[in-house]
Each structure stands twice: as structure tokens, then as C-alpha cells.
Design a protein around this nucleic acid. Sequence first.
DNA 1: ATGAATTTGTTAGTTTTTTAACCCATAAAA
DNA 2: TTTTATGGGTTAAAAAACTAACAAATTCAT
Lengths: 219, 219
Amino acid sequence: MPQDKKVSLVVIRRLPRYYRYLSDLLSQDIRRISSKELSERMNVTASQIRQDLNCFGGFGQQGYGYNVEYLHEEISKILGLDQGYNTIIIGCGHLGHALANHPGFKRRGFRMIGMFDISEEKVGKQIAGIEIMHTSSLESFIEKNPVDIAILALPKEGVLDISQRLIASGVKGLWNFSSVDLEVIEKGRVAVENVHLSDSLMTLAYKIQERETYKNQSE
Amino acid sequence: MPQDKKVSLVVIRRLPRYYRYLSDLLSQDIRRISSKELSERMNVTASQIRQDLNCFGGFGQQGYGYNVEYLHEEISKILGLDQGYNTIIIGCGHLGHALANHPGFKRRGFRMIGMFDISEEKVGKQIAGIEIMHTSSLESFIEKNPVDIAILALPKEGVLDISQRLIASGVKGLWNFSSVDLEVIEKGRVAVENVHLSDSLMTLAYKIQERETYKNQSE
DNA sequence: ATGAATTTGTTAGTTTTTTAACCCATAAAA
DNA sequence: TTTTATGGGTTAAAAAACTAACAAATTCAT
């Protein structure tokens, strides 16, 4: 039964992980897998896997388990990876450069069709085969080439202005690498996914500290 | 009362965000803030802020609120940002390059002291003022220069081997950008924080899809 | 073909996380 | 100085997330 009510974000965030493990299984030529076996590989409970998948429908078979290829395909549909997304990058610093060259994206249907920067000296150069344009030509570009996703890899000072222009131009999703919480500002007007690298690093610092104190306690 | 029992990771993951907002307040010269006011800025409940902070102690004052500078300082201690961390990067591709140049890290006490790559032609070159060394000299380097954190920015094929060598050398934390779940493999032997960029992008794809269907429904 | 062993979908129970409510200390105002 | 309003800490209630349990469907071995 296909998705009677809104699925919570914690479940959604686990789907890419399932997808990843299923890809691995496929490349090992494993054709079927039970929730129990998968749960051991992933270090989660089998219950959770079954619950998660059943938010979207019954993909398995009693006594058999899940067909790896089928489930892989279904999750890709759920995530919308079969849609294809025209993607641009705003900000061609080191990070924008790295993201443009990230191998995984193209493979999953994210087509890089434009790169933008505010620096005159970068404009005209190429990154990953794409010519850098000046940010001022953002609107005219999007008008000719519909854009689904914009990757924000620019300093946070410029983010607010740019994101408003992007939304006005009809961009559907923002992948934000700057340290502002865009979803708070643009609440509901666009899909936002933040990647707060600094936050993640701070979390690591905490985990290290925690581990040290834990170690000392058990001595 | 200082931390009677283990604080859950969901709370920890919110701390960097509080820290960020407090930094902003400081730069605006705002000296005090109530949980209510902060909750409105951050789009969370005031209850949650008070609960979260009280996991670590009473930093506020009834009738007054929180002293921004003091709270900012305390959170930085909780996260362990006052410790200082010797950090190396493994893998000097585009991503390693970008991370080496990330401005926020040095400011928060993460000292980049070494970069490593397996490619002979990269060895000897400099990134962000640091000379790239060959991965084979990893152990001898760490012996002379104690390393706290290693940033893994190499293809996943090499990650398992490298992480085991890092752990054996006494590295305390791994910041993993490859698409493997290190914490599953190295369970408990080291602090791990994953940044799964592809997962994040897939989540964005889902959010876009969800928003579209939501839009259609309300028409 | 039959029975035992699997293994899912699903429901019920448990734990965790979030939100609300309230008491009392402190600050600001009168 | 007294009064009033503010607002944190804390406890209690509600909601969300997770785990366990089990009937029904299927496979696999004999």
C-alpha cells in the first residue's frame, strides 16, 4: 500500500544508506537478502528495515526475503533518482570545484549544466568541462536552461541574495554548504538540504572527548 | 549539575547549531538572550533549548536569560573546541584540497599538520602551505607528530586499510568522507563521524519530489 | 505432497525525544 | 523598597521512534 501518510525524515535519511548497501550486494552478485542478514551487515535491527520499507510498500516476500535488484530499483524511485536533475553550482572556490568533480553525482542523474562565480577572473575558465559564468547572468541562464537544483558553495554573505534569486527563477532545491540555516529563512518556499561541515567536525570533537573520558572511567 | 548521565547524540548534534547562532549574536554585540528569543530565531521550541543546555548545567539566570558570551564559551568547552586538534588529510584530490582550505577549521582549533596521497606525482607539491607526503610515510610521520584527527578524503577502496593503520598509530578520530560506514567496521575502536555527501543529495532529491506532490495535492 | 524452516508485513509494546506546564529566583519598575 | 514581570530549571505529559512479537505466506528438504 503506497504511502498513506507522510513519512518522517528520519526514515528518509536511512534510505540512501539502504540504497548503498544494496548497490554493494548487486556488485557482489547477491540476488536476494533477508532483513535479518541485511540488518547484521548494516548494524541495525531487522525490525527497523522492515518498518522503513513498509512505509512505501511491501517489497519482500515471506520465506524468501527481498529481491536485491528490485528493491534497489524501488528505493531509487522513492528517492526520485530516476527523475534526473539539472544542477548548477554557485561559487567556484575549492569546494565548488570539488563538488563539480564528485564522481557519484552524474551517475545518479544529477546533470551539471552550469557554474557561476562572482569573480571576474574566474569567469570564462572551465571546471569539469563546464564554463564558469558570472553570477549576474544567473537569471538569463535559467530562463533558457531550466534548473532543478542549485548547489550553494559560496560564502554565507552572498547566500541570502542568491537563494532568493534562485527561488524566484523556479529552482526547486537548494543544496547548501554555507553555514546559514536556509530552511529557517526560506521556510517552505523551496526544498533545502544543508551540509554543515563545521557542525559535523565539532560533533567529531565531542565524540573524541567523550571517548577519552569513557576510557579513563574504565581504568 | 554536570552531566550525570550520557547525553544523547541528537542533543549533541544541536550544540554546534546553538554555537553558530551565539557566534552571530556576539558579532551583533548582543550580550544577553532568552531561550524564547533564541527559539524564535532558530525556529525551535524554547523548551528544547532549555532542556538541551540543562544536560550540561544551568548556564542561565531566571528573569535575565543567558549571557551570550558565557554560553558561547561553555558550549565550545562541551564540544571540546578548546582542546586543539592536530589534523591530517588522507587523499589530496579535489575534496581533500577543498577541506585543507576550509576557513572555519583553523579558527576552531583544528591544526592541519600533514597531507598524504598515494600518487607519486602529487607528493612534494604543496596545498594550503603544507607539503604532500606519500601515504607510505604515514606511520613514521605520526610517530614524530602526534595526530588527533584524520580526514579521510580518499576513494572508498583505500579507506579500510588506511583507517586500520591510523587507529593502530593512535589517531583518535576519523572524519570520513568516503561512502563506507566506518563506524560499523571499526565499532568502538575510534571516534567516527561520517559525511555522506551522496546520501545528503539523495535526501534533497526526495524533498523536491515530496514538495511537488504536496503542491499538486493542494491544487 | 507434506512438514519444517524461513521470513515478511503488521500490530503491540517500549524507549527516546519533544513539548508543555509550573514554581521560584532574579531583574526591572514603581 | 516593594511590586510586577520575566524567564530558567525541572517535572510531567505527549509525540515520535524504535524494538519485539507473531500470524500468514512462502520456500525448501524429504
